[in-house]
Each structure stands twice: as structure tokens, then as C-alpha cells.
Simulated scan of single mutants.
Amino acid sequence: MKKILLLLLSFISTTLLAQIKQDTVKVKKDSVQIKQDTVKLKQFVFEDEKNAKNRKKNKKEIEKDTTLSYAAEYKRDVVKFQSGIRGGLSFGSFNLKDVANVVRVTSSGLPQTPFIKDNFLNNTQAVMGYLGGVFVRITRGSFYLQPEVIYAKKGGKFDILQSDGKLFKRVNASYTTVDIPLTLGIRFRQGRVFAGPLMSFPLNFNKELEETLQIYTANDFKKELFTKPAFGINAGIGFEFKHIFIEGRYEQGLSNAVDYELGPSSNPSRFQMLPSLFQITLGLIR
């Protein structure tokens, strides 16, 4: 009987130990599974945070670049009016149509005796001038239209050679004008580019240019000032910092600012002069 009891107790203890081992293995497996689930959860949270950062970055880039579609921005925005002033320096030269055999005349318009004939030639040396004026800017989206009224002094040089090839005179010429540029521009962040036509009304010549022309004509060429505008084009680039801007602009004449007949009426020579200049200006806009 004792043997039977001992055998029964041994069987029960063996069965219990085996069950405990199985439960321990299951607990270990469950712990490993929990650790794996924790790692996967952390990885999912990290990827979600990374995606959220990328979404914010892309959103900021889209918000920052407001000129991706000029047409869309033009339709979206309302018309905005601004006004301002600008002024600065210019560096110019004259494109002079070479004129040969221009006869010097007396105060009565008759040829000097003996006949003296001169040749007019280009000189590409730049002459400094100045400018200042006001403008109005009409903006919609990335586009703007800007009419201006500018008072300017423009300069250049040309040479006069005698018939024997010797230099008779190097003329440092300049004249003042009232210019009316009309520019169409495109803005991009703090910068802008623009171009447009220009109408220029000559006001006055400097003394050196007047005295030089009077050697070759007895006509009162001053009476034609401010009656016949000259036309040109201008283009440039500017950068704005709140209400202050800096601008570089190139201007090229298309019609002659000076266009006179020199010499005696029996043998006239056409004297024509086109200006070209580079401007650098500072301005305020509000």
C-alpha cells in the first residue's frame, strides 16, 4: 500500500513540475512578445513623428514660396496702390551718328571763309549725371505697373576732328530732361524685374554743348526744347527691404534727343545723338 502511495505521489509531483515548466516557457514567450510589441510601437510613433515633421516642412515651403504660380496669385489678390520717391546717379554716353564735313558758319549763317570743315565722332567715355522723382505703383499678385515722373541730368562726350585729323574739340555735353517712364514688373520675394517704354522731354543744354553747336548753325535750336519728346526703353532689377529699395536700371534711347541741321542751309549736315545710360538709385515706398 505504501509503495502505491509513493508511486502516486511521485507521479503527481512530476506532472506538477512539468506544468510549471510549461507555464514558465509561456511566460517567457509572452515577455518576448510584449518586448517586440513595444519596439514596434516605438518605431510606429517615431515614423509618425517623422512624417508629421515632413508635412510641416512641406507646408512651410509651400507657404514661403508665394510666387509658384503668377497667374494663380494674380487671380487671388486684390489691386494695391503704393507711392514713392527715388533718386540716384547715372553714368551715360552718347551714341553719335558720325557726321563728316560739317562746315563752320558765321553768326549770319553763311560759311566762314576760308571754308573749315570738321568731322564729329563718337566717344564712349561715361559721364556722371543724376536723377530724382516720384512714382505710383499699382500691384496685383506678382505683377505691377509703375508710371513715374523723373527729373534727370544726362551726359556724354563726343570728339570733333579737323579735316587734317587733329582734335579740334572734345565736347563734354549734358542736358536736363523730364522723363516719363512706364514700367511693367514681376515681383519675386524681395526682388523684382521690370521693363517698359520711356518718353523724355529735353529742357536745357549745358553751356559747352550750346557753344559748340553755335559754331555750326545760326538757328535758335533752343526754341525746339520741350516741344518734341524723345523715346526710349528702360529695364532693370530691384530689391526691397520693407519700405526701402535699391535699384539698377539701364536706359537706351530709340529716337534722337538732339537732332539738328548743322552748317549752311545750302550744304546742311544732320547731327543726331542717342543717349544710353546706367542708373543706380535708392528709394522709399509706402
Rank of each mutant, 00 (worst) to 15 (best):
G156M: 10
V78S: 12
S255Q: 01
M128N: 04
K26F: 12
K166M: 14
Q146G: 05
H243W: 11
E208M: 13
V171T: 07
L96T: 14
K223R: 15
G109K: 11
T124M: 11
E240P: 01
R86Q: 14
K28A: 08
S174E: 11
I116H: 00
Y250Q: 04
Q112V: 15
D37T: 10
N267G: 03
F205S: 02
S142I: 04
S69N: 09
I246H: 04
Y175N: 12
L131K: 13
A235F: 01
A52K: 13
P147D: 01
A195R: 03
K42V: 09
Y74K: 06
F245Y: 14
G141Y: 01
D220K: 03
P202G: 06
D65G: 06
N101A: 09
F11T: 15
K26G: 08
N267T: 08
T176H: 08
F120M: 04
V193K: 00
Q214C: 05
L41Q: 07
F135D: 06
I160P: 03
I34D: 14
K40A: 11
K166A: 11
N256Q: 08
V45S: 11
D37R: 05
H243D: 14
K154C: 03
R286V: 13
F239Y: 15
L182K: 05
V25R: 08
Q19R: 15
G263Y: 00
R137M: 15
I215R: 11
V39K: 04
Y144S: 08
V78D: 11
E247V: 08
A18R: 03
G263E: 01
Q214A: 13
V102D: 03
N219T: 12
G109Q: 09
N267K: 09
T14W: 13
P181D: 05
A18M: 13
K242V: 06
I285S: 02
T106E: 07
E210T: 09
E247K: 12
E224H: 07
L6Q: 11
S265D: 06
V149P: 09
V39W: 05
K28W: 04
F245H: 01
K228S: 12
Q22T: 11
E251H: 07
F201S: 05
K28P: 03
K3C: 00
P114Q: 12
L182D: 09
Y151Q: 05
G133P: 09
K57P: 08
F226L: 06
L121D: 13
T227C: 07
Q279S: 04
P114K: 10
G84T: 03
K21A: 11
L182Y: 10
F271C: 07
K50W: 05
I233Q: 07
I186T: 10
P147L: 03
A218Y: 12
G87A: 00
E224S: 15
S142M: 07
G156Y: 01
V78C: 00
N119D: 10
S255G: 02
L203Y: 10
V27S: 13
E148Q: 14
I285Y: 03
N219P: 00
P114Y: 07
L274A: 02
I180S: 01
N54D: 15
N256I: 00
Y250H: 02
V134C: 03
A52V: 12
G87W: 03
E211P: 06
L225M: 10
T38E: 15
G196I: 08
K56V: 11
L198V: 05
I280Y: 10
